[in-house]
Nucleic acid binder design. Structure first.
Lengths: 228, 228
DNA sequence: ATTACTAATCGCCGAGTAA
DNA sequence: TTTACTCGGCGATTAGTAA
């Protein structure tokens, strides 16, 4: 369920194996196959194929149940997500940067945004990777639940990675940022790895968006995301 | 121009590099970049990045011209094809098998088909990989030149590989086969690596298609290709 | 049959450095 | 500055084989 947070990239064979399983329908229906057959398809030894299967399983990308005769493989949601991201990366190449527009109502958060955005561990990363230090506070937008699935397509975008860290004895989680505009003004949508909201998206910008846009709770705003 | 005939697969980093270059527009416009920058993006050393560039260049997937300051990189058509094939493989996963229909007129070939299809070097491969021994003769279909670009999309499909070989002192080239139906009857479209025709596609089947379909030169036939 | 461990080999990565 | 060579080290692969 949680995205591939770690930045260590997959090796080509593991990716091809994942794709092979998806091709065989392992997203929906378990696929019965031996490590030998996997090896034949990938043109590697049975031993290597088996290691790949073990690795993918460890990474939570496939689920294995070993029978005496064959093993039964299923892609996990995380495995599917890896493939969808790859797909999207290629689509980006051939079809240009994706766009995603939606609108929603300004909402009050729980004041967490301010707390998180004040953490130096985050600030240095924002400065480094977004090119600015965000105003300490997120603008929360409540969107129509029907739109959520579409907005969730952002998961496939490359995004700008903000890594989690430890500080003062607690853990701060990672997040991904996506560039866009709200009512024409540049901002980033920030999606924490472990999101707490369902129908709320959080935006950050260098200034206080509430002020610079002159909006209040309940006001409708329109957001235009564009992939870099 | 010639497709990646060799079956030795690319490593993940080379593929990512190729995609990175395409992302930077190297398909159309040369990209100026140093091996250090490439390494940073791929998160490998400058030396490794350089090796990848050399490899890709050797494989004819990119063109390099070294300046004193940066190198100028362009994707070759072969490089673009590699990426397009990857793209298509993922699309196949998420959007199901592609279909491609076209129609054309039965045409006479030069009798080469019979000669090639009689070569034992090909026959064993057909039997092994297509599951039948083709009737020794291709059915040639002349198609509307306007359709050619669309039909050329077949290049992205996975296809069934027939390898080239040497026999009696000469070289026989490789080809790719794609499954489909002509007027409802199963057949394979065969696309030699070095194609001699422009607006003609060649079909093979276990029986003589001319007979079993009861068609003659000039008759219009319709072909339905479906990806496996 | 399978999966998967061990041992030996292979090949790749990156540091140092030449050009 | 670049690109790109050599080489030591180590991770990955395969053959053999145990379970």
């Amino acid at each position: 369920m949680t995205g591939r947070t770690k930045g260590h990239h997959m090796k080509a064979e593991e990716l091809r194996l994942l794709r092979f399983l998806a091709h065989g329908g392992a997203e929906r229906t378990p696929v019965d196959i031996t490590s030998r057959e996997v090896g034949e398809h990938l043109e590697v030894s049975q031993q290597a194929a088996d290691r790949y299967l073990v690795q993918l399983s460890k990474q939570g990308l496939i689920a294995r149940s070993l029978g005496a005769r064959k093993q039964r493989l299923t892609l996990t949601p995380a495995g599917v997500e890896v493939l969808r991201k790859e797909f999207h990366a290629y689509r980006r190449v051939f079809e240009g940067p994706a766009r995603l527009g939606f609108s929603g109502q300004v909402a009050s958060g729980l004041g967490e945004g301010r707390y998180y955005l004040s953490q130096p561990g985050y600030i240095v990363q924002f400065q480094e990777r977004l090119g600015y230090t965000p105003f300490p506070g997120t603008l929360n937008i409540r969107v129509d639940p029907k739109e959520l699935l579409r907005i969730d397509g952002l998961r496939d975008w490359e995004g700008i990675r903000i890594d989690g860290f430890q500080a003062s004895g607690r853990t701060f989680g990672g997040a991904s940022c996506y560039g866009g505009r709200i009512n024409g003004r540049p901002c980033h949508l920030i999606r924490p790895d472990r999101s707490h909201y369902q129908d709320v998206v959080e935006l950050i910008a260098s200034e206080c968006l509430r002020e610079s846009l002159g909006v209040h709770d309940g006001d409708t705003v329109s957001v235009e995301m564009e992939e870099s």
